[in-house]
Amino acid sequence: MSKEWPLWEVFIRSQHGLAHKHVGSLHAPDGEMAINNARDVYTRRNEGVGIWVVRAADIVSSSPGDKGALFEPANNKVYRHPTFFPMPEEVKNL
């Protein structure tokens, strides 16, 4: 099955969600069936969800070894974190 049914990664935008979130993966012979399977495996078919399926093979991922190079520079420049600005009361949840 793994030969004929490649692995797909599934991203779902829930009814009240603003962005697609990665929810898991599944096997399917092609995109159309991957979408069908994603509905059955991950959504229980709530109305109004968006589904993206992407062949796992098409995803390029950063490697764990690069973590330092990618993220450290931001972490040790405290002035980059917008945490020192007084915010007016009226602005909630920023």
Partner: peptide, 11 residues
Amino acid sequence: PALEEDMALTN
């Protein structure tokens, strides 16, 4: 026959 089909049928 496959996990995905199993889920679909029971759905």
